[in-house]
Design a protein around this nucleic acid. Structure first.
Lengths: 204, 204
DNA sequence: GCATGATATGAGTAATTACTCATATTGCCT
DNA sequence: AGGCAATATGAGTAATTACTCATATCATGC
């Protein structure tokens, strides 16, 4: 069963249809979870016919894969924006705090969606994507780490670039999903975890 | 819609049926993901009739809730065992390493299941459970932290007890799901994250 | 304006799914 | 032994689901 798109949109309206479908899928999962995620509901919410959906996605899993890719791209863009929004002379802790805040924001807005993606990533055969994520969002992080070599203890930049986003996600999950959410604690704990990780000497 | 068990097993065979159902549910999710999780499949795999399943669980969500509770209990037991398996005079880093290893092991064996539970926890209304988890597995961690106050910088034990397992999970996810899995790096990174977190001063 | 490919439609279908209920079997108590 | 509650059964059903296909509408180049 193929997981790649069936057909790439060539005209403007086709692109609009394609986007509306992905947007609808994201909305449904984010609001009602994986259980409510079915192709008929997606088509209806997108305002297109079920037939149109299957013009662009050969099956439900392919739609999920496209959604995962889109979400990873969004996350990478968010990080990039947060990293560059501060001037070039911001200090290390300020930047870390800004990145953490951006990542947390992004994740809190898409709580169910993020966990759904985690689950589906594990289920679907998608090695290539992990790599591409590292190339996208991870590159921002890796560059920062090299720029601030003096503030941190020896870490391989690529290794850290994979571990760090996971840290932030984890802390966000642990604290932001309580009722009521403890957002201040979440941010403080995430920053603490990130700085602690970066300043910790090798444990080998 | 009620999420609590419909009827508690009183006889031995009833308990066996109940357990078989939960076990089957766990197996199906762990092997094929949330999409494959349906009550008919669970009953068949458990070797009981679909009617029996609905004797103990009023609906599918209630079954999921029971499964989540069971898994949390398992995780807590694993941690407790790892913490007490070492002698009372083991040093801090050794204990941390042991706990990390136990948590990672537990999680790696139940990859899809763990992410499914994350997702369903976020979807279902379950505040009480989070508290009970903290009481179970978190207590072990909190006690350890107090015992090693001198090795760590000021952290509220309860706060840390919630953050730490999340850290380990995140790092495990980030590294153990690659192909091939990088288990050595995963463990080293998890230990590094935990120790870094605990030794990092307040960031407020 | 016409031809042709791109795009959109949605009724329809076979399969799956959550769940019920009437009936059957089992174990326990006296 | 016999009676009663606990437990187990599984055919059945209404609803949902992934997906197809024949047909219709659009857009663009000539």
């Amino acid at each position: 069963m193929s997981l790649s798109a069936r057909k790439t949109p060539r005209q403007g309206r086709a692109q609009a249809t394609y986007d509306a479908i992905l947007e609808a899928a994201a909305h449904i999962i984010a609001k009602s979870g994986l259980t409510a995620f079915n192709t008929n509901a997606v088509a209806e919410r997108a305002g297109v016919s079920i037939g149109s959906l299957y013009q662009y996605f050969p099956n439900k899993d392919a739609l999920m894969v496209a959604l995962i890719e889109r979400q990873q791209q969004n996350q990478a863009d968010t990080l990039k924006a947060a990293a560059t929004s501060l001037g070039p002379d911001a200090d290390f802790e300020t930047i870390v705090r800004s990145l953490v805040r951006a990542a947390m924001q992004h994740h809190r807005d898409n709580d169910l969606l993020a966990s759904a993606i985690d689950h589906e990533e594990a289920r679907l055969p998608i090695d290539a994507m992990l790599g591409s994520y590292l190339d996208q969002g991870g590159r921002v992080v890796a560059q920062l780490l090299q720029r601030f070599q003096n503030d941190i203890l020896v870490v391989d930049a690529d290794t850290a670039a994979r571990t760090l986003p996971a840290l932030v996600r984890a802390v966000t999950d642990a604290w932001a999903n309580l009722s009521p959410p403890q957002l201040d604690i979440a941010e403080a704990e995430a920053v603490r975890a990130v700085l602690g990780y970066l300043r910790q000497g090798s444990t080998h």
